[in-house]
Design a protein around this nucleic acid. Structure first.
Lengths: 228, 228
DNA sequence: TTCGTATTTTACAATTCCTTAACAAGGTTA
DNA sequence: TAACCTTGTTAAGGAATTGTAAAATACGAA
């Protein structure tokens, strides 16, 4: 899943926290939604179906613990990861939080780096669940081990550099389908990045060298496809 | 859908931005409409039903966030993609923007290449929805695999060059229908392109050669049709 | 930092595809 | 029939796109 498709709901009554945490998560590329109290948390969670909810414990209207319980009642949010924000010294809330169905907690004061890496760790859990299906993809003589960034071709193991691996993975998601250059740039490089006109070709060339010329077909004026 | 049929509404209070961004999008072939504030954004969106709306966040009268919320209330604009323009440092608006129902954001300063590739990527999303038209079309002995840019004729696989493939695809969308030369030029070449009078004939000839003379019927003074 | 690898750019070469030009072959109209 | 119009055919030139090797740059680990 693409980072920008990951939705995080952030709920805290302090605007400062919303801004700082929101900023850090946004700049990591996540889609961030915010709420200011438990009521809003439940509303917005229903609306946006976030993958991760970060809940402050102490809030007016409805506190984090109660909000968490309500959220856990929603069947469509069963996959959602919920984590608390707790002030130091509120440690009791950890206990109550886990009882309420939280997955983790983050303690204030928040250090951006810690926050981000914690969020990444939590989301990794998410990927384990949904990405479990295609961690290994087989096409003809080729086996792609997504988690390990390696492949085997006719049993022979090949380690590919990241970009090459991602390009191959993309093409291999739909063998036969022609991926347009635009689409490849978007999916492998991300559309913020501007690269020169020969970059894709060079990577294709490397793949042809390593995996076999015939596996990659050029469709002039359009793009490339992977053929079995 | 043809590029020139895609409508983009661009809203910003700075004439410079309108000009630069508008120019870049126009030269890509899109139809561009502009507005200078949120009020105009809503008006023009209702009027033109654009496929994509690019909204500056900071604007007089009605800011981008509010405009976005108003736009999202319009049922006929539910398929419309909305993206924000944010100045660097305004990053918090990303957060509020997603809450308001935006799909993406583009940060200033705007690099034309990034802009264009981002717009393309967003519009691809649009096509995924409506372009759910069959990836495989069968007519008699002929099977057209649109995604793969290839066809089979009586089981025999043929790879066609792009223009030939597109021409065939067009004619095959409605077997029996006569496509006027104008229409063919518009759909396959895009009517901003000017080509000589024999170009279509030559491509038809190639198709006749590869697929069968009888499949393509000339209607003199009008155009061509594909017959089963 | 320094080294080694990965990635991108550059600068041509090679290739394919598209278009054109020129003429032929019909067909239509006056 | 002659003049005119449209389409068919061919081959060749040129435009556009891709392939390749090598150099330059960026990146990451030690």
């Amino acid at each position: 899943m693409n980072k920008k498709d990951i939705k995080i709901l952030l709920v805290d009554d302090e605007p400062d926290i919303l801004e700082i945490v929101g900023y850090n998560l946004s700049s990591e590329g996540y889609q961030v939604f915010t709420g200011e109290n438990g009521v809003e948390a439940v509303e917005k969670a229903k609306k946006h179906k976030p993958h991760l909810i970060i809940l402050d414990v102490m809030m007016p209207e409805m506190d984090g613990i109660e909000a968490c319980e309500r959220l856990r009642e929603q069947p469509e949010l069963s996959e959602t990861i919920i984590t608390f924000l707790t002030a130091r010294g509120e440690d009791y809330s950890q206990v109550a939080g886990f009882d309420a169905g939280a997955d983790d907690y983050i303690s204030k004061p928040i250090k951006p780096k810690v926050l981000v890496s914690k969020v990444k760790a939590l989301l990794r859990r998410l990927k384990d669940v949904e990405g479990a299906t295609d961690a290994v993809v087989k096409i003809g003589d080729l086996v792609i081990y997504k988690e390990e960034y390696k492949i085997t071709n006719k049993g022979e193991e090949i380690t590919l550099p990241r970009k090459e691996f991602e390009l191959l993975s993309l093409l291999a998601t739909k063998p036969g389908k022609v991926f347009k250059r635009d689409e490849i740039l978007d999916k492998v490089w991300g559309n913020e990045v501007v690269v020169g006109g020969r970059t894709i070709d060079v990577h294709i060339r490397k793949l042809r060298e390593k995996i076999g010329d015939k596996s990659f077909k050029t469709v002039k004026g359009v793009g490339y496809k992977f053929v079995d």
